[in-house]
Design a protein around this nucleic acid. Structure first.
Lengths: 183, 183
DNA sequence: GCTCACCTATCTAGTGATAGATAGGCTTGA
DNA sequence: TCAAGCCTATCTATCACTAGATAGGTGAGC
C-alpha cells in the first residue's frame, strides 16, 4: 500500500481546486486540513505542478469511468445516457457548491503551468467526443453530432458556472431544461 | 481630472482579472505594467478589495452601456438585439484570449471578498434581465422568457469558457450557432 | 535471533520570493 | 502654500520549496 495519504492529498487538492481554484490553494492549506505539515506533501509531490497534474489525471480517470459506466448501462438508449450525464453534473452542482475541476482549470488556464494546460485539452476532448458518440447513435451525421456535443457541453458548463456564480443550484435545472432542444 | 492613472489602473486590473483571475493578479504586477510603484496604487485604492469592487462596478457600467446602446439600435428587432449581444461576446472571445470579468469572477466566487461577491450578483441579473426583456418583446410569457434568458446566457458563458479552455476561438462560433434554437 | 542497512513518512527549521499594506518624504503645479 | 501624486523603505504574512533529522518498518546476511 503506497499509503492513502497520497490519495487523500489528491482528493483534498481536487476539492480545493474545484471550489477555490488552482492559484488559490496552497500546500500549507492542504496540510492543515490533513493534520500534517506542508513538507510532508512535498515528499509525495515534489512541486505544486506535479500535484496539479496528478489531480487532473485523477479527475480525468473518474470522468472516463463515469462515461464508461453510463455508456454500458444505457447502451441502447443514447438519450438516456446523455440525461444520465447531466444528472452527474447536476449532482456536482447540488451537493457541493463547487465546479468541476475541468471548468475551474479552464477558467484559469492562462495562469497554469504548461503541464496542466496540456492535461486540460483532454477534458474537453473526453466530454465532447463522448457526447458526439451518443448523438451519432441517435442518428446524427458526425459533423452535426460534433456541433451538438460542443453546444450541449457549453450549456452544461454554463449551467454549472451560473449555479455557482449566483449561489443558486436551481439555475442548473432551469438551464439544462434546454437540453431537450437537442433531441 | 482625478487623474487618468486611476482609470488606467482599473483598466489594467480588469484585463488582468479577465485573463488570469482575481487571486492571480497583484498590485506589484499592475504597477510594473504602469511604470509606477505598488505603493502608488494603494494611494488610489486603499486595498485590493477596493480595487476589485471598482473593477466590478466599471465592468457593470460598460455592460449596462452596451445593453442600452444595443436596445436603442435594435429597438424594434429583439432578435437582432440578441444577436448583437452575442457579437459583443464573440469579439471578446476573438480579440483577446480572455474571459469576461463576470465569468472569471464567477468561477472564483468562493475565494472572493464578500464585497465583490455582492457585485457579482448584479452581473448575472443584468445579463439575464436584459435577455428576458428581449424574449418578452418576441412574444414569450415572462416565465418562459426568463428561462430562455438563463439558458442562452449559460450557453454564452460556456462558449466563452470553452473557447478559452481549448484555446480555440472557433469553438465560440460552433456553440453560439445553437442560439438559433431559441427563436 | 540479531544486527546492519535501507526505506518510508513524517517532522523542525529555514530559504528566498512575493503578497498586500503602511509611514513618511519629495516634487510639481495651481 | 499646499495638496495631489508618486516615491523610498519597510512591515508582516504567506507562498513554494529545501535540508537535515527522526522514528518506525522491512529485509538480508551472518
Amino acid at each position: 500500500m503506497t499509503t492513502d495519504t497520497r490519495d487523500k492529498i489528491i482528493e483534498l487538492a481536487q476539492e480545493a481546486i474545484a471550489t477555490r481554484g488552482y492559484s488559490a490553494f496552497s500546500f500549507r492549506g492542504l496540510a492543515a486540513d490533513l493534520g500534517i505539515k506542508s513538507a510532508s506533501i512535498h515528499y509525495h509531490f515534489p512541486t505544486k505542478t506535479h500535484l496539479g497534474v496528478e489531480v487532473a489525471r485523477a479527475y480525468r480517470n473518474q470522468l472516463q469511468q463515469a462515461f464508461d459506466s453510463i455508456a454500458v448501462t444505457y447502451e441502447s438508449d443514447p438519450q438516456k445516457a446523455i440525461e444520465s450525464l447531466i444528472a452527474v453534473y447536476r449532482y456536482e452542482a447540488r451537493t457541493s457548491q463547487r465546479m468541476t475541476v475541468c471548468t475551474m482549470l479552464g477558467a484559469e488556464i492562462k495562469n497554469l503551468p504548461v503541464e496542466i494546460q496540456t492535461e486540460m485539452a483532454s477534458f474537453y476532448a473526453l466530454n465532447i467526443d463522448w457526447l458526439k458518440q451518443q448523438f451519432i447513435k441517435l442518428g446524427d451525421e458526425p459533423e452535426v453530432a460534433r456541433e451538438k456535443a460542443c453546444q450541449l457541453f457549453a450549456l452544461l458548463q454554463g449551467a454549472l458556472m451560473g449555479a455557482k456564480g449566483q449561489q443558486n443550484p436551481d439555475y442548473f435545472d432551469v438551464v439544462t431544461k434546454a437540453a431537450a432542444l437537442f433531441f
